[in-house]
Nucleic acid binder design. Structure first.
Length: 796
DNA sequence: CTCAAGTCTCCGAAC
DNA sequence: GAGACTTGAG
């Protein structure tokens, strides 16, 4: 039994055509009872509670294949997945079971990409044109910054970022700017309401939608008329929603509407893996499914085919500490497997070295190749030391997410040029690239053109075309603006003549962007140049492989591509990614790095218990990605935003059942370090710390390095080093430690500043990095300076 | 208007 | 520490 089941899982892994063909003949045979029910219940609402590794993807593919074999037309099936990659894989498998043609005709993709596709077709009825642009988070931010500056709201008072998330969460709860304004109860919210309004008007004027709009406009479309609703209810007779626990309010309503008539809706989810509450996911959607559909069939997939007993026990040990949890028992017939190894390190760099060692050992001991290993972490910033260490040791790796190719400035600029070509109303893209490369249209001229466009009630590009009519504009700027508009218009006119790739190449070459980088002759410019070429090459590939290629479609894919989508899994490389990005994936060997209090869980002192529970689910997701072996590493201190922070092992580690874990012995060198750090206190170390020597820093309080004390500075200011600077193994830390290298100043001191000359300190406020001083410079007046940045020299 | 240097902010995950 | 934004001199 065990063997047989394992074999099926492996077939799934290899996914060779023959294996899948065999599966086709009796694909129900390889399933357990619950899985079979999930596959064959084709009528009415169905809730599949699918534990981690319970063969969910297989069930979903078979289910669709089963539907098609029982007469449902492929194009009547709507499958909403969490990533486009998951959708593509699902289609591919269905292609092998049914036919390629059938697979191609299924509507499978993320909510965002499926809805974008539909909205393209129906754009006019909502007051957009079908060339609408999709704005990503960066685009949103720049619209918001512009709105704030025209409303006279300083980013000092409210950050653009916080307004962005306020608007997004309002939209997730389906609150319009009018709703928001009505409910705004304090000054801050009233300010946000104003920005929200301007933001919405700008997007409308730009013929643009943000991610949330793709969902909201779909709902508006469905609610616009009985006929419209009926049209899509009949078009899609069978709905599948994967990762249902991470759907938000808008997605929930869209599904309700679409399924309203036939109620053939199958949702799959696991409340234990809900990790997107922060972006509006509402766990009630899955918890209340049976209320919404009282007639629903409920299937629980509780047998795990992925992991060893140890790994499963570890996952269970952690998750059972959550109070809000549907009780469930995940079990497996797999072997016990190896215990989970917990690895301690001094700092993030040593942690990275150990991760490399683990990988090398895994590979050497046979059976494991780099692609079998994933390193998971909580924050993108953690990838850097890992990356350095892997590179040094020549271990092939690939980073999923992070600052990806498509988020680079030059790539975004290129995309903005293309977007403007497709959607001339896209003022945001225009502003982004109008002076890149420099065309002599600076802020002043741009401001005048914008003001004039506003008065005339025309689009920005229109105003550029008619720049000769703008009286306030200098002749030179008028010409520059006109030339820019002509450039765009010239290529917009060729949209139907040229294939997308040629159009893009000729146009981008004409913008001067490539030439600008060519002329700079720096390594950075060369990189940027190559990246643009890479994007153009990608467009060529797309043009060749798609049946009906269009720039518009290409740009849409670009905007809606998820981090995981762009991962190239064909190469044999270790995968580095965040825990969030790892959802839905599995690896024979998993290393979870940075298991420290304050990082994983990444919670602040005042955070709510709910947030802590979400962090725990994240840990759970990480653990359950592993099939054979799991390593968890943590460091005693690490660099965080430019300075060293201390922390204690994650409290989650103590939740792992003792018999499943193996705490690796702490390395000798590390103990040595501890002793040295506190036993050899030069003049400036703090006595309290010396007393607490063997104890780690208190829980939950990430401790900064002691700030330099205002001891009488010798003259000239001797290099004041942090206490541990003379420990050989800590290389570069002293330099990076912002809290300790700068000069300590006191009232009355004479100091020298590079720019302002000599002056006298009048007062000092704050401590550590935040220390500020008011200094009177006879030559330059009274200045308020941040000590950290001022680079002062004490002269007496 | 442009560029470079200086200053400041951001550090939580992402369609 | 990195990147975004601001500032001041040419």
């Amino acid at each position: 039994m065990n063997l047989k089941l394992k074999k099926v899982t492996q077939d799934e892994q290899n996914a060779s055509p023959t294996a899948e063909k065999t599966a086709m003949q009796d694909f129900l045979g390889g399933l357990n009872d619950a899985q079979r029910t999930a596959v064959t219940t084709t009528k009415g609402p169905l809730l599949i509670v699918a534990g981690a590794g319970s063969g969910k993807t297989r069930v979903l593919t078979y289910r669709i294949a089963h539907l098609i074999q029982h007469g449902v037309k492929p194009w009547e099936v709507l499958a909403l997945t969490f990533t486009n990659k998951a959708a593509a894989e699902m289609k591919e498998r269905i292609g092998r079971i049914c036919s390629e043609d059938a697979a191609r005709r299924i509507w499978a993709g993320t909510f965002h990409s499926i809805f974008a596709r539909i909205l393209r077709m129906e754009a006019e009825s909502l007051g957009y044109t079908n060339t609408f642009t999709i704005y990503d988070t960066d685009d949103q931010l720049s619209v918001i910054r512009n709105a704030m500056s025209s409303l006279g709201i300083s980013t000092q008072t409210i950050s653009a970022q916080s307004i962005r998330s306020a608007i997004s969460s309002a939209k997730n709860q389906m609150a319009s700017w009018q709703d928001y304004a009505t409910n705004a109860s304090d000054f801050r919210e009233r300010q946000i309401a104003k920005v929200y309004e301007t933001y919405e008007r700008t997007l409308r004027r730009n013929n643009a939608m943000d991610f949330d709009d793709l969902l909201l406009n779909m709902i508006r479309l469905l609610e616009s008329s009985e006929q419209m609703l009926a049209k899509y209810q009949t078009r899609f007779t069978h709905l599948l929603v994967d990762e249902y626990q991470d759907t938000n309010r808008a997605q929930y309503i869209a599904v309700q509407l679409l399924a309203g008539a036939h109620r053939n809706v199958c949702v799959v989810g696991d409340d234990a893996q809900s990790i997107y509450r922060w972006r509006g996911a509402d766990i009630r959607n899955i918890l209340d499914f049976q209320k919404d559909y009282p007639e629903a069939t409920v299937v629980r997939l509780e047998q795990n085919y992925r992991s060893t007993k140890s790994i499963l026990a570890a996952a269970d040990g952690v998750i059972k500490h959550n109070r809000k949890q549907i009780p469930k028992t995940l079990w497996t017939e797999n072997s016990d497997g190896d215990p989970i190894l917990i690895v301690q390190s001094r700092d993030d760099r040593e942690e990275a070295e150990r991760v490399v060692t683990i990988i090398q050992q895994e590979v050497q001991s046979g059976g494991i190749t780099p692609r079998d290993v994933a390193v998971l972490y909580r924050t993108n910033a953690q990838s850097q030391p890992l990356e350095d260490a892997l590179r040094r040791s020549n271990v092939p790796y690939t980073i999923i997410s992070g600052v990806s190719f498509y988020k680079r400035k030059e790539v975004k600029d290129t995309a903005a040029y293309l977007r403007l070509l497709i959607n001339p109303n896209d003022g945001e893209s225009l502003l982004r690239i109008v002076n890149e490369p420099s065309r002599g249209i600076g802020d002043t001229s741009l401001g005048r053109i914008q003001a004039w466009a506003e008065v005339q009630g025309i689009g920005l590009l229109d105003a550029f075309r008619r720049s000769g009519d703008i009286p306030s504009l200098m002749k030179r700027a008028q010409n520059a603006a006109y030339d820019f508009a002509s450039l765009v218009d010239r290529f917009a006119g060729k949209r139907d003549e040229l294939p997308p790739d040629e159009l893009a190449q000729q146009y981008i070459e004409s913008t001067g962007l490539l030439q600008m980088y060519r002329e700079q002759h720096t390594d950075e410019a060369e990189d940027r140049y190559n990246n643009i070429v890479r994007l153009l090459t990608d467009i060529s590939e797309y043009t060749l492989t798609e049946e009906e290629p269009s720039l518009q479609d290409y740009l849409q894919r670009l905007a809606l591509m998820s981090d995981v989508d762009e991962a190239d899994t064909t190469k044999n490389r270790v995968a580095l990614m965040t825990l969030h990005a790892a959802k839905g994936l599995e690896f024979p060997v998993v290393i979870i790095a940075g298991a420290e209090e304050g990082l994983l869980p990444l919670v602040k002192d005042n955070s709510h218990a709910d947030e802590r529970e979400e962090e725990r689910r994240l840990m759970y997701v990480g653990i359950t990605r592993a099939r054979e072996r799991l390593y968890i590493t943590y460091a005693e201190r690490r660099m965080r935003f430019g300075s060293v922070e201390y922390s204690t092992p994650s409290s989650f580690l103590h939740e792992l059942p003792e018999e499943t874990v193996n705490w690796s012995a702490r390395k000798r060198r590390s103990e040595q370090f501890e002793r040295n750090r506190f036993d050899a206190p030069p003049a400036y170390s703090q006595p309290q710390l010396a007393q607490s020597a063997p104890q780690p820093a208190p829980r939950n309080i990430p401790m900064r390095m002691p700030a330099t004390k205002p001891a009488p500075p010798p003259k000239p200011a001797a290099p004041m080093r942090p206490a541990f600077d003379d420990i050989p193994s800590t290389e570069n830390y002293s330099q990076m430690d912002g809290g300790s290298t700068h000069v300590a100043v006191r009232r009355g001191m004479k100091v020298a500043h590079k720019l302002f000359g000599n002056g006298t300190v009048e007062s000092v406020t704050g401590t550590g990095d935040n220390q500020k001083a008011v200094i009177n410079f006879p030559g330059a007046g009274r200045k308020h300076l941040m000590i950290k940045f001022a680079k002062l020299e004490v002269i007496g």
